Computed example of a mutant assay.
Amino acid sequence: MAAVKQTMISIEHVTKSFGDFKALDGVDLSVRKGEFLVILGASGCGKSTLLNMIAGFEQPSTGRVVVNGRQVNDVDPHCGMVFQQYALFPWLSVLDNVAFGLKMKGMGREERRNVAQRYVEMVGLKDFANSYPKALSGGMRQRVSIARVLANDPDVILLDEPFAALDAMTRQVLQEELLEIYQKSGKTIVFITHSIDEALMLSTRMVIMGARPGRVVCDIENDLPLPRDAAVQLSPRFNELKSQIWNTVQAEVMKALGTPAAS
């Protein structure tokens, strides 16, 4: 009998309101250690709000969020966040940006540079370690953001549409690189996207959020074999899953607009 994986994130009966606006209503969700969970859903369904509560940037109105056995009541240092915007320090080199969190933890200069160098190399930026963010493309800056989070060795990595602003070719390259990093690191990852193709490429499991107020309406295991590359999109199973997800998302969008979904 296979061992049951430890629960890394537990979201328990969570609601979230901003004044009279209810963003989330009765969300229950568990994420297993080592899972790559992708959260899908139309704009305004509460995906980013949910991610912000896991990180500790927002607190539930009711219910609770637990990460690795600890209830989240404030910004959680055990979660690392990668945003759509790169949020790098322009006055620091690539290496120093990646090492910044380690410096804040009090790690010695030589050790933190060695750790940072390892993750800079992991994301393919060895030749740019001494460059500054202004000299990098958008895709390269996002690699630095990912390396900085990895260097801090969090329990959970949270990514809020990190590739949305990138061109299609760069996005595909970074998807494949992130998947390789996931397989090497074994980290628990929660990733938000609007793209069904991206969800299928990256995830081991997908959750679809319903129209506002947000709630979980569908939970799908991604059984496409790993490792994956762009060729996975040609497989019949990819298209079966894509159709299932699209029909669910479309029904929720139509519900939000007050329009009956097409049969």
Rank of each mutant, 00 (worst) to 15 (best):
G44A: 04
L179K: 07
F57A: 03
D127N: 11
L202C: 01
R237H: 12
Q71R: 15
V65M: 04
L92V: 06
T259N: 07
G56S: 07
L37Y: 10
S145T: 13
A87M: 07
Q233T: 14
G44I: 07
M8T: 09
L24H: 03
N239D: 10
E252F: 05
A2V: 15
A129E: 04
G56Y: 07
P90E: 11
E240W: 05
D197T: 14
A129M: 07
V232K: 03
G56C: 12
F18R: 03
R141V: 06
N114Q: 15
L51G: 00
M209P: 02
L226V: 09
D153N: 12
I220G: 01
N68Q: 14
A42G: 08
N52D: 14
G139Y: 01
M254A: 07
T15E: 12
M53Q: 00
V98F: 08
I181V: 15
A211G: 10
E161W: 07
K134I: 15
I181K: 04
A261Y: 09
F163E: 00
T62R: 13
N222F: 04
A165Q: 05
D160Q: 12
S195L: 09
I11K: 06
M107L: 14
T170V: 10
S30L: 12
A87Y: 05
S48L: 04
D28R: 13
T7V: 15
L241D: 02
L29H: 04
K47V: 11
R171F: 04
P133N: 02
G101P: 09
L158H: 08
S235E: 09
C45D: 08
M169A: 14
A164W: 12
V94E: 01
T170N: 05
K184Y: 09
K16A: 01
N114S: 12
S235N: 08
C79E: 08
E111C: 00
T7F: 03
A55W: 11
V4D: 13
Q142D: 06
V72F: 01
E176M: 14
V123N: 02
E58W: 11
D127A: 15
Q71W: 11
T259C: 08
D20I: 05
L174Q: 03
L179G: 09
R112L: 05
L95V: 11
L136P: 00
D155L: 06
Q6F: 09
L136R: 02
V207K: 00
E35C: 07
N152T: 12
L88H: 02
S137I: 09
Y182P: 01
N239H: 12
Y119V: 04
G63W: 00
R143E: 10
F238M: 05
R228I: 07
V120D: 02
L166C: 11
G258L: 12
V75L: 14
I181M: 05
K33N: 08
P236G: 11
A164L: 13
K126N: 13
Q183A: 12
E180P: 02
D197K: 06
L174P: 01
F36E: 03
E58Y: 13
A251I: 08
K47Y: 05
V67D: 02
A87D: 04
A231N: 13
Q142L: 04
A211P: 01
I11M: 11
C218R: 06
T15S: 15
N247C: 11
I11W: 06
I54P: 00
A251R: 11
M104V: 13
